[in-house]
Design a protein around this nucleic acid. Structure first.
Length: 825
DNA sequence: ATCGAGTATAA
DNA sequence: GTTGCTACTCGAT
């Protein structure tokens, strides 16, 4: 019989001594199902003609002992494949189970035989080979079978094929969030401290909501979603039952890989409770955490998405948020303002049986609710990534850019019969890390206030250069192109890329670019019809992200298709194009005031916009491939400032005012999170007033703020400085203010993990700044260090702006205050 | 005094 | 994922 289903979650297992892929998913009527198919794992080996007979004998005899049985070679066949531009003959060697690939190939390597694609995860291999796209409708031929140990029907497939590219729309999702007992001045310790409450927030296919907060302390409350149990054991038992009863397609959490699930697992293990949530009755698997690998929690058959990971790894790049906390991200993405409670007071409220516990329950549920909404909001984007790289959503949301690009390239190897180069070993990585290359060109601006600025920029500069100049490792210094026809890379290095045979990477990249061009047209048509473009927008964003990552990928030391020459050539062409554009603008009579990588700022002067557009069209006339210079905008006013203590113009630091009076600030402290809102606010106001031509007001504004600052009237929230902790606290060689504060947080029992952003205020006193750095709860209003905020925050933030106008530092202080400035006169 | 480590930002 | 740029703090020389 034939059925159609949406595959969502994947595992592989040995069944009756044979390797099988298990695809958990849903039929079109939302019934859950698991489709299984036998599949043989394999890898490739490069075999010399003369060794073939001998090697065959050795492979037949080869056996490697493991605790899962003997790893063996099942069979092999000879295939032709292209490896970095050269077509060669390889053996495709099949093994008896997936893990055997690694063991057998290691053995062959020790015999001096080069092996390839030996580290491709089995599920990934299957999906690519079978051309099955997760989350889309797949048609399978086969039959239902009776199996033990399964919570859903099992269908064994003989044939599978993609039925449609349309992604699944109805997904039953459950968000989960836990609160734990964490008394002050103690480290988070799942061995010691219990889970106090667990919140669930679900939504089914029809949009029906499900809310519940479980807790094991009784207190007065009229919350209808509250369920009270006797103790933590029962809490965990109920937690298991709730998930099993609800049977979501997706379980989501915010940092649930790193916190909620490992915590639940640790507590359950402590009481020897089963957490057999898997659709095959398997236990919650929190994975192995090492120094290099983060933990992942997998529940067989239920897709666990850690929304935090997707945001941190991929989506966060196009957010403006200063931190990846649930609070900050929800605010930007959902526009919600979260009701906050001081979570460090939970332990105390718990011990005192306080009625405030109700607030913590509400807070707990709110977090689950926000997580659910974030997951739903990002679902299109996550699914698009999954579809485009053809991998399980579980893996995609946990990937970083390099893996994502590589997966996409790996998918394309099938279409072009290409063999993937191996990932670099330890030595190779070390060598690659020492290689550097020159980046983009940045024009040094002359400090000043400018009028009528026109900005042009190259659309997708790096991707279009790679395709237009056929950049790719295979065509490097080819011998097939005649010397006079070679497309030489600009600069001192004498090298070129073949212009007869298209390189694999540029073919792959061009497909992305072309698809995006089509898609943009479709989006426009759809919008014109007044229809929703959510999914198309997500797809366009995915393609753009992928295309933009190619250049970085080629220069990344861990890449399979690493090529420093390709990365070097990409930036070399880019520098050449932007410099030629600048020259051409000047030849056309425009004054160029700034340029950075792919953009060019010029002054309109006494010309009209049409003349600028004519210049742009002339540039475009000569551009190859998909390269294009675009009109970015017209700005009536703009300011460029000088380097500190110099009259040279600062690069990557300017502010513009557009036709609608909107300000666009680049590089200034205003947009940096490790400056106080006070300094940022003053700077932004000064920039605005100066650009609008109100210089006196700008100066007066600063003086006013300084007066308030000296009187101790500035609210503490405006003085908060946020700095990220980027590594383990113990490995800091120099203890900055942020590290000092983080160490105190640790003492209070707050889990300080890399990536966390700490907030502090500089308090009154003497000594190092780090000694004066205070947590918000450690300082009272007015007790801040006014001098610090004046000399280290406000003055540096506005000084360079005023200097452009000929206003010196002393002019800022004049009349603003009579105290504490003696040392400056 | 000067320099490296650390943080953050632009493209 | 890459390089480029500026400015500040800490801590060692």
């Amino acid at each position: 019989m034939e059925i159609r289903f949406f595959p969502i979650e994947f595992v592989h297992k040995i069944r009756e001594d044979k390797p099988y892929i298990y695809m958990y998913g849903k039929l079109e009527d939302n019934t859950k199902i698991c489709v299984i198919q036998e599949y043989q794992p394999y890898f490739y080996a490069q075999v010399h003609e003369s060794h073939k007979t001998q090697l065959g004998e050795r492979l037949k005899a080869l056996e490697v002992e493991t605790n899962e049985g003997k790893a063996k070679v099942v069979s092999w066949e000879s295939v032709e494949k292209e490896l970095l531009g050269k077509t060669k003959s390889f053996w495709k060697i099949y093994t008896n189970f997936p893990k055997a690939v690694q063991l057998i190939s290691n053995e062959l390597s020790s015999w001096g035989i080069e092996c390839y694609e030996k580290d491709v995860p089995f599920v990934h291999r299957y999906l690519r080979d079978q051309k099955i796209t997760p989350m889309t409708l797949v048609e399978v031929k086969g039959e239902f079978i009776e199996e033990k140990n399964t919570r859903v029907p099992i269908f064994i497939a003989e044939e599978v094929k993609q039925f449609s590219k349309e992604a699944i729309k109805q997904l039953k999702t459950l968000a989960i969030d836990i609160e734990t007992y964490s008394p002050e001045k103690s480290v988070i310790d799942p061995e010691k401290n219990p889970i106090l409450m667990i919140a669930f927030y679900g939504m089914d296919e029809e949009g029906q909501e499900f809310k519940k907060v479980l807790t094991w302390k009784r207190f007065k409350s009229r919350l209808n979603y509250l369920e009270t149990v006797t103790d933590e054991i029962e809490l965990l038992v109920r937690c298991r039952q709730i998930i099993l009863d609800y049977q979501p397609d997706i379980i989501t959490g915010y940092f649930s890989d790193g916190f909620d699930f490992p915590y639940i697992k640790t507590r359950a293990d402590k009481y020897k409770l089963k957490m057999d949530l898997g659709l095959d009755y398997s236990e919650l698997n929190t994975g192995k955490k090492t120094d290099f690998r983060e933990g992942k929690t997998k529940i067989t058959g239920i897709l666990h998405l850690d929304v935090f990971k997707f945001i941190r790894n991929i989506f966060g790049k196009n957010l403006n948020t200063e931190s990846y906390s649930l609070n900050a991200v929800s605010k930007e993405l959902l526009g919600n303002k979260k009701d906050d409670v001081n979570i460090s007071e939970l332990a105390q409220a718990w011990d005192n049986n306080s009625e405030e516990l109700e607030d913590f329950c509400k807070y707990n549920l709110q977090d689950a609710h926000l997580t659910l909404k974030l997951c739903q909001k990002l679902m299109y984007d996550m699914i698009e990534f999954s579809k485009i790289v053809n991998l399980p959503l579980f893996d995609v949301v946990r990937m970083k850019f390099s893996k994502l690009v590589e997966s996409y390239i790996m998918k394309r190897t099938i279409d072009y019969n290409i063999l993937a180069p191996n990932r670099p070993g330890r030595n190779e990585i070390e060598q690659r890390m020492e290689e550097t290359f020159q980046g983009a060109f940045v024009y040094e601006p002359t400090p000043g206030l400018y009028e009528d600025i026109i900005i042009f920029d190259f659309r997708s500069l790096y991707p279009t250069i790679i395709t237009a100049h056929n950049i790719g490792p295979e065509g490097l210094c080819c011998q097939c192109c005649d010397e006079e026809k070679r497309d030489l890379v600009p600069g001192d290095h004498h090298y070129w890329f073949c212009n007869r045979k298209k390189s694999f990477l540029s073919k792959v990249l061009e497909r992305i670019i072309l698809r995006r061009i089509d898609l943009k047209r479709l989006i426009k048509e759809t919008k014109d019809k007044g229809e929703e473009t959510n999914i198309l927008d997500a797809r366009s964003y995915t393609l753009k992200t992928l295309a933009n990552s190619f250049y970085g990928y080629m220069g990344f030391f861990g890449a399979r298709w690493y090529s420093i020459e390709c990365a070097r050539a990409t930036t070399a062409f880019a520098r050449d194009y932007i410099q030629r554009t600048i020259k051409k603008a000047e030849e056309s009579g425009f004054q160029v005031i700034y340029a950075d990588t792919d953009s060019c700022f010029l002054l309109l002067g006494d010309k009209i916009k049409d003349e600028a557009m004519r210049f742009m069209n002339e540039v475009n006339f000569d551009l190859p491939g998909h390269m294009e210079l675009e009109f970015e905008g017209h700005y009536p006013k703009g300011i460029f400032v000088a380097l500190k203590g110099s009259d040279k113009g600062a690069k990557k630091k300017y502010a513009l005012l557009d036709d609608d009076g909107e300000m666009k600030i680049t590089g200034f402290e205003t947009i940096r999170r490790n400056w106080s809102p006070l300094a940022k606010g003053v700077q932004e106001e000064v920039l605005r007033l100066v650009l609008e031509g109100h210089i006196e007001e700008a100066l007066a504004h600063v003086k006013e703020i300084i007066k308030k600052l000296k009187k101790g009237e500035i609210a503490l929230e405006k003085l908060i400085i946020k700095t990220q902790i980027t590594k383990d606290l113990r490995s800091y060689s120099s203890i900055g203010p942020h590290v000092a504060v983080a160490l105190r947080l640790l003492e209070q029992g707050i889990n300080v993990v890399p990536g966390m952003v700490v907030e502090y205020v500089i308090g009154k006193g003497s000594g190092l700044i780090r000694e004066k750095a205070k947590l918000l709860e450690e300082i009272k209003p007015g007790e801040y260090d006014a001098d610090y905020y004046l000399f280290n925050q406000i003055i540096p933030a506005v000084n360079s702006i005023f200097l452009v106008l000929g206003i010196k530092e002393e002019d800022i202080y004049r009349d603003s205050s009579q105290i504490g400035l003696g040392k400056f006169f």
